[in-house]
């Protein structure tokens, strides 16, 4: 019962959605934090503070905001992606953006003092310097990915509100757990939680081992 095909399906879907969201979010968060880390202006400080503050934004608020956007009567309603996995991916990507930007900014800011300067003085152009910095901070960046991925995988608000917890379509770990609790199936909900925990721990362990080997 516990490891039924439905659980397997939910597991795969959750991993797909959250990893896609992490990659998508990184595609704008990492360049943004690189850019922010190489500037000292007051505006940069303001932007970074805003992102820091947004980390704590409740997931349901992000979900609700996105629902308003994606609803048929909302400004992006014409896309018709509400209650699809894409909506969850988008929502989670937005949700983890402040987290990635804040953490990556810290890492890059520290690296900037050393690697950025060295790269520039050794003749690198801006893009080469960015790349060098990324290379040097890769293990930290991977850890940031993991944290962001875990947050995406473990969040409920966005998945529930813009995903709709539709059986066989947008049902992921957390929404299933919420539903099973509502149904009173606490043991099943706990089992799902345990699977979630095992998956996250396994991925963390694998990446740690890979990380150790690389250095």
């Amino acid at each position: 019962m516990v490891l039924s095909s439905e659980v397997l399906e939910i597991t795969i879907r959750s991993l797909m959605i959250s990893s896609t969201a992490t990659i998508l979010s990184s595609s704008w968060s990492i360049p943004l934090s690189l850019r922010l880390s190489s500037s000292h202006s007051k505006l940069t400080n303001l932007i970074v503070s805003i992102f820091n503050a947004l980390i704590g934004l409740p997931t349901v608020i992000v979900g609700l905001f996105l629902y308003m956007l994606l609803s048929r009567t909302g400004p992006l309603g014409f896309l018709q992606i509400l209650y699809t996995p894409i909506a969850i991916i988008l929502g989670e990507a937005i949700l983890i953006t402040p987290l990635i930007v804040s953490l990556a900014y810290e890492v890059f800011y520290k690296a900037r003092v050393e690697y950025w300067e060295v790269a520039l003085t050794l003749g690198a152009d801006t893009y080469q310097a960015y790349r060098t910095m990324l290379r040097e901070t890769l293990s930290d960046v991977i850890i940031i990915f993991l944290i962001a991925f875990s947050r995406a995988l473990g969040e409920l608000g966005v998945a529930l509100i813009v995903g709709g917890n539709i059986r066989g379509f947008t049902r992921v770990f957390t929404t299933t757990i919420a539903l099973e609790i509502a149904k009173g199936n606490f043991e099943f909900a706990l089992t799902l939680g345990l699977i979630l925990l095992i998956i996250i721990s396994t991925i963390t362990a694998i990446i740690r081992i890979l990380g150790v080997r690389r250095e």
């Binding site: 050393e114 690697y115 300067e117 060295v118 003085t121 050794l122 003749g123 060098t132 290379r135 040097e136």
Partner: peptide, 11 residues
């Protein structure tokens, strides 16, 4: 070229 007091080498 500038050489830091505590040299920063890359990976």
């Amino acid at each position: 070229v500038y050489i830091h007091e505590n040299p920063v080498l890359f990976r």
